[in-house]
Design a binder for these strands. Structure first.
Length: 263
DNA sequence: CCCGGCGCCTGAGGGC
DNA sequence: TGCCCTCAGGCGCCGG
């Protein structure tokens, strides 16, 4: 699932529904998540996004969730007594006072859950922030020579882009993913900066991108997939120039682009 | 420092 | 229906 827009969508729904709630119980069904040893009950004061991490701020430190490839959260209100047996692919369950139950599903089991008294994982600039502009992005791109696609996916440089939104942003900016990061002109950097912000903004507005696993905590699907230009569109016509979208491997990741209009 | 390759897991989908 | 292969929205580690 989850890149910045999907995590942001998840965080916004959780923020509305569990801020101020008392976490009464935490069930861990998958041993590889480890034991959190949380002092329960505790109160969730607020919910934030840190790159692709979901951060629950409590009165005893932060609870960090990372959904990786196939994780998703589902929040329901449940009146009746519920079974303590996990549902299919349910890896953890947060039970709140008042009947809200947050389930963490993760078929592939790459997701992580941790408790930190303080500090957050090292993370690059938030591309939605005003701090991310042509100047700061140019510093990042030109401070080293790397494949552009790989750089965009490096969370320690720009936090939140993943395979889908990197490809979509590059298409909008008409830049080829095979370019070296330090080969971009000022005009291209300006265009790419704006494209990243616009693609992410639009995707958040649509509630993210639902291909397979991803759902909003309410269970609904995002709709940005309807607006995508290249991702998973191999062989289909580019909406700008009608050329066939190509798929190649870059850094082990499928990369979709238009060979004609992305220079 | 950079890159490609692989492993972590499970399930879905296509070809035969 | 079943088998085998490939692929998947992430990321950390390894060796060249």
């Amino acid at each position: 699932m989850p890149e910045l827009p999907e995590v942001e969508t998840t965080v916004r729904e959780l923020r509305k529904k569990i801020s101020g709630k008392k976490l009464r119980k935490l069930f861990i069904f998958d041993r590889r998540l480890g034991r959190l040893r949380l002092p329960l009950p505790l109160t969730i004061h607020s919910v934030d996004r840190h790159g692709k991490y979901i951060v629950l701020h409590s009165d005893f430190g932060k609870i960090l969730l990372h959904l990786r490839m196939s994780g998703r959260l589902l929040l329901k209100r449940e009146q009746s007594k519920i079974s303590v047996l996990p549902e299919k692919h349910e890896r953890a369950r947060f039970v709140f006072s008042g009947g809200s139950v947050l389930r963490f599903f993760d078929p592939r089991r790459f997701g992580t859950l941790e408790w930190r008294k303080d500090g957050l994982p090292e993370m690059g600039v938030n591309p939605m922030s005003s701090e991310f502009d042509q100047e700061s992005f140019r510093d990042i791109l030109h401070s080293r020579s790397r494949g552009l696609k790989a750089l965009l996916l490096d969370q320690k440089l720009v936090a939140g882009l993943g395979n889908i939104y990197a490809d979509e942003s590059l298409w909008h900016a008409k830049v080829n993913p095979r370019r070296a990061s330090d080969s971009l002109s000022r005009a291209e950097i300006q265009h790419l900066t704006a494209s990243i912000k616009e693609v992410l903004r639009e995707a958040i507005k649509r509630g993210g991108f639902t291909l397979r696993d991803y759902r909003k905590p309410s269970g609904g699907e995002g709709s940005y997939q309807k607006f995508r230009k290249v991702y998973d569109r191999e062989g289909l016509p580019c909406s700008r120039c009608r050329s066939k979208i190509e798929r190649v491997k870059i850094g082990g990741r499928s990369t979709y682009f238009c060979p004609r209009c992305q220079k």
